[in-house]
């Protein structure tokens, strides 16, 4: 594990160094990434120019949801965002070149083309979250504060698992990179809105099947003192770390299965 992290660090450091060689270009692309991801919040602001509440949630409350998921997703995207290129690597055969190096393949794929500009998304997520925290009147407790602090981390772990599982799927269907975006980008969009506006079956699906709800919905409802639309008990709010660990474990298994299949079929 330490070896894998070291290798990840080495590859990332190389890409950061090469990015920093063109500072102006780095600044521009980071601002671009910031602006691009901010369009989602602009859309929400436009919605709230017509209404005072969406599904019973005020703008600061939606901003809280938006800020927590954007930060978590931004973190996962920064660390694992290159995973969706796996299918292409399988197709053009460059995956083989990763297999002859003394470093886990997952690390090499994840760190490849590490893009520091993705800090733009994290930044705007944190800004929106700050706005929400300033405007919201939350009765803070230690548990709530801990939950808030854990949300980006556990959320990033859950999204990272989706990136890895999606990549593992591409071992079998090389052109299916877009399926992954449904769960990553799509999941992020979903979690920006209150769970109360979606069909209950959809909410159940993202709670029990693809547990994206644990990124921010479940803990946020607790922090905001909101009722859960599908009637989950309160203690569910404490589960994100457990769910995150479980997701990482399952993603690792999926990845192993995918890589094993690649090494036995060669394509």
């Amino acid at each position: 594990m330490a070896d894998a992290l070291r290798a990840y660090g080495l590859i990332v450091a190389m890409w950061v160094r090469s990015t920093m060689a063109y500072r102006a270009s780095f600044a521009l692309t980071t601002i671009g990434n910031f602006a691009a991801t901010a369009f989602d919040f602009v859309t929400i602001l436009l919605m709230f120019s017509h209404v005072d509440a969406l599904g019973g949630y005020s703008l600061p409350e939606v901003a809280f949801l938006y800020g927590t998921t954007s930060t978590a997703f931004g973190l996962a995207d920064l660390l694992m965002g290159s995973m969706d290129r796996l299918g292409r690597r399988v197709r053009d055969g460059t995956l083989d070149t990763l297999l002859v190096r003394p470093v886990p393949v997952l690390v090499q794929v994840a760190a490849d083309r590490f893009a520091l500009r993705r800090l733009g998304r994290i930044t705007q997520g944190l800004l929106v979250l700050t706005y929400a925290l300033v405007t919201l009147d939350i009765e803070w407790t230690v548990t709530k504060a801990a939950m808030l602090a854990l949300m980006p981390l556990c959320g990033a772990a859950i999204f990272a698992s989706v990136f890895v599982a999606g990549a593992a799927f591409q071992f079998f269907a090389q052109d299916a990179a877009e399926v992954q975006s449904s769960f990553t980008y799509g999941g992020n969009t979903l979690l920006q809105y209150p769970p109360s506006i979606f069909a209950k079956d959809l909410v159940r699906g993202v709670t029990f099947v693809v547990p994206l709800a644990f990124v921010n919905w479940v803990p946020s409802l607790y922090v905001l003192g909101r009722e859960d639309p599908i009637g989950l008990p309160d203690w569910f709010a404490l589960l994100p770390p457990v769910v995150a660990a479980g997701c990482l474990g399952l993603a690792a298994l999926a990845w192993r299965a995918g890589l094993r299949s690649y090494r036995s079929t060669g394509n």
């Binding site: 299916a176 877009e178 399926v179 449904s182 799509g186 809105y193 979606f198 069909a199």
Partner: peptide
């Protein structure tokens, strides 16, 4: 396969947007 994957994604996003 790419087309099928794309249709899937379009549908997922369609559902999310529809509810909002």
């Amino acid at each position: 396969v790419a087309t099928a994957a794309g249709v899937f994604t379009n549908t997922v996003f369609g559902f999310i947007l529809a509810y909002t």
